[in-house]
């Protein structure tokens, strides 16, 4: 699998560290309650198909990335800097 980092260009999967579902960008309020926090930390949609997840370009530029890809075919649809997603308050679910 190859991921196209917006800064570095297309790179081998080995350069990246996988964090998990991009839900990590939508942290609930501290007092949101244990259901909300349980959903945030543990429960996952875990789709067989299109998903968005967080990767770290560990051996490259060190940027956190939101990768939209297919969990069945490993096709990659798009990659954005997590910073842009977060600051542009784009939907990261």
């Amino acid at each position: 699998m190859r991921i196209k980092c917006p800064l570095c260009g297309e790179r081998d999967r080995r350069e990246f560290y996988y964090q998990g579902a991009a839900i990590a960008l939508n942290r609930p309020a501290p007092d949101a309650g244990d259901e909300a926090w349980n959903d945030y930390i543990h429960n996952r949609e875990n789709p067989a198909g299109r998903t968005k997840d967080l990767w770290h370009h560990e051996a490259g530029c060190s940027a956190w990335l939101v990768v939209e890809r297919n969990t069945v075919t490993h096709e990659i649809y798009g990659v954005e800097l997590a910073e842009d997603v977060k600051r542009g308050s784009k939907n990261a679910d």
């Binding site: 959903d39 429960n43 996952r44």
Partner: peptide, 18 residues
């Protein structure tokens, strides 16, 4: 490995990543 898909049929999200 398909727990998330089947649980979703019952409206559940489970703490599983495949």
């Amino acid at each position: 490995g398909r727990s998330s898909q089947v649980a979703a049929m019952a409206g559940m999200q489970v703490p599983i990543e495949s």
